[in-house]
Computed example of a mutant assay.
Amino acid sequence: MAVYIEQYKNDYKQEIEKLIVEDSFVRKDIIATLDLFPQYGLVIKAESEVLAVGAFTGADKKSSMTLYVKPARRGKGIGTKLLKALENNMRNAGVEEIVCDFKDNKSEKMFLYKNGYKSWFYSSYMVYTGDKVSLDDCGITNYDDKDYYKCQKILSEAFHKMRLFVGIKSTLSVQSEKQKNYYRENSENIFVLREDNNIVAVTILEDNEIDGVAVRIDMQGKGYGKKIVSYSVNKLLDRGFKNIGLWVVKGNPARFLYEKLGFKSERMHEFVTKSIR
């Protein structure tokens, strides 16, 4: 049976949701990527059946890629065909480095390694399912556009320090108008913790996840991390979410804080990269 590649269409969404049956986490991730970047999605079909789907997250120099192949059709070259097509589209869009992650397992590891991807780091997805956390009034307010430069500095320096600590090559991220505009547009999901009118911690929420949290590096170890993570948990519970997630890089000591607050590890992912310049 001949297989062929097509551009993703919204008409395929329900079929793709039914295709990815064994892992709801992967299904949610791929559907979310296709909803945001439908123009960067591809499907592989045989007659009228969708056998595989993949997408990437935009035309930046570094972009994330995800793909899925129907289990019964794996090991027959379909995944490789789709991967090469995605890489070609990414290269044409100006992408220079691809990032991909997967639940740690031998088959996906060997597939990506064989196709030139190299291990970058491991990260655990942790989930909180408890009640609201006890928290005193602690000076946390919504992000304001004037806070951008201080917040970006806190996030950049804290993540840079963490990456170096766990052995990941790192450089400080730079400020940009694109990021500033993104923060402005999502200000209802960004919160800052102030001490004596100075910002000491930042948290960014996305759907049911704590997408990023950081404490100013000279103020770490003083309880600010616990305060702003607790606030994030309560905020998401108030929004009606029952399961709250976050990622923590393997070796990051912040994991102990999350565990004390009631987060439990649900899955371990390996993150890999590939240069396509």
Rank of each mutant, 00 (worst) to 15 (best):
N88C: 08
F25C: 11
V99P: 06
G225V: 05
S119A: 12
V69C: 11
R216E: 08
S48I: 05
K13G: 02
Y12W: 04
G221T: 06
V95G: 02
V50M: 04
D23I: 09
E108S: 15
S64G: 09
E209P: 02
N10V: 06
G212Q: 13
I20M: 02
V127H: 07
V21D: 15
G130Q: 06
E206K: 04
K81Y: 13
N88H: 09
D104L: 12
Y113E: 11
V95S: 03
L82A: 09
L34M: 05
I190Y: 00
F121S: 09
A158N: 08
E17N: 11
E49C: 06
D145Y: 13
Y231W: 14
E96S: 13
V192C: 07
W120N: 10
L237C: 03
V229Y: 00
L86R: 08
T203G: 02
Y182L: 14
A32E: 15
Y40H: 07
K178P: 08
K118N: 06
K153C: 13
Q152N: 15
K9A: 12
C151A: 11
E195Y: 09
L193T: 01
G221H: 09
L34W: 04
T273W: 13
K62G: 15
K76Y: 15
M90S: 01
S63W: 08
P253F: 07
D147C: 07
G54P: 02
R267N: 06
M1H: 11
T129P: 02
K118P: 00
L155Y: 03
S275C: 14
S173N: 05
